[in-house]
Design a protein around this nucleic acid. Structure first.
Lengths: 230, 230
DNA sequence: GCATGTGAAAGGTTTCACAGCT
DNA sequence: AGCTGTGAAACCTTTCACATGC
């Protein structure tokens, strides 16, 4: 606990901003492919689905990369955001669970592109081992520590059944992995220095159900709950 | 449209709270299965992975469902949260895209359980139509409007390639759907009264990469502060 | 005694509106 | 003129700490 932060005066980019940078990056790649040289905060914000004040404030945390009266240079901004996110290097990712979801993730195109490399797809089922998925041979979970060490894995994806998730997580953490993306519907227990992000389908559905119920119930006069920024 | 059960504070549950209610619900179901009759905010918070002050504040927005000096009745709280989230009724869900991801979602157990029913799995590929996935026959996307009307679909899941997502989205919105869960890596354009939530793998990875870079980039000091708290 | 429920404080995020630069 | 970058205001979320009630 007590993370004192003695002095590391890192450039503190707000979490909310970090979470939106990938969105801007994607929008910029789209503009880049269309050959657009510069873009205003208004245009970029519109493509990314946020408002322009928020976009400008977000970008201001990275530095002054725009030109007043003109806008932002698309390629330059792509580079700066990529660098900030750590995408100018490649990250090795190990996926655990070669079921429907694991295979879907392995096949996901955007996965293997810029910044990430799938180092391995692991599964506990011997019958699954050796099968080829997305150009990778499924390896047995027993090789986890080997894979992490040899492939220099620093990010892992857990796509196992809930019952197996904590065990797999512990092994990854023991092997030195400090970033985990968890698709299993459960809360993972990890030491403080490990980052966990979770993606939970049923939670998303339940949140939608809540708002849907509000709309259907439409009693008094409170206006729409409306879709906020995506 | 008739008399409703008067609720203490039906109005204005904060978004942040709504997003955590499913977490509490899952923790409570776990306790319920183990036969636990009551639980304190401290215990429940620990299982759900939040701190107790936050949990109490969250629950206070639903009403006063605890007993001072004792805690919360597990079954009663499950009911109250379920009702608040709109899970005491069943919601029909249509999934579009019978690729790897769509099949993974259709097979996802927690999906078909409490509160949600998969009404249809749609795909644009004629070769895919008719195949059985998770006890459902894949139907052609042309039947979208039919399915929404006949099955009373109010929530849809988009698991198509990015290029097809906006078109599918427009058709769902045109058919009257007002809640969308989007897995395609793009920003959907919808009218204000439609709710969109997005799940984006590459965004999650990029956020992890950002933090991973921070860890690696800081001074070399191994700040293994490994406090197994919580 | 003990744990909830809640004002108040602290911290974070979004929006506003305009100064400042091109 | 046009658009960025940014203090300040408004708003939202989390945490604190303790009065309240079983």
């Amino acid at each position: 606990m007590t993370s004192r932060t003695p002095r590391p005066r890192e450039r503190g980019i707000p979490e909310a901003t970090v979470a939106r940078l990938p969105l801007y990056l994607r929008a910029l790649h789209g503009l880049s492919e269309r050959g657009t040289p510069t873009v205003s905060s208004e245009e970029l914000a519109s493509v990314a689905g946020v408002n322009s004040a928020k976009l400008r404030k977000d970008l201001s945390h990275l530095g002054s990369y725009g030109t007043r009266g003109v806008g932002y240079d698309v390629e330059y901004l792509i580079y700066q955001i990529s660098r900030e996110l750590g995408l100018t290097q490649d990250w090795s990712v190990a996926i655990t669970g070669a079921g429907n979801l694991g295979r879907a993730l392995a096949n996901y195109g955007g996965f293997g592109t810029r910044g990430f490399r799938i180092a391995a797809l692991l599964d506990a089922d011997p019958a699954m081992v050796g099968h080829e998925v997305a150009g990778l041979q499924v390896r047995h979970i027993d090789t986890l520590e080997d894979v992490v060490a040899k492939e220099n894995v620093s990010i892992c994806v857990i796509a196992t059944p809930a019952a197996a998730a904590q065990g797999v997580c512990d092994r990854f953490v023991g092997a030195g992995v400090t970033s985990i993306l968890n698709f299993a519907p459960m809360v993972l227990n990890v030491p403080d220095h490990v980052d966990v992000r979770k993606v939970d389908l049923s939670i998303e559905l339940q949140i939608l159900a809540f708002h849907e119920q509000r709309k259907a119930g439409g009693d008094k006069g409170p206006e729409w709950v409306g879709a906020l920024d995506q």
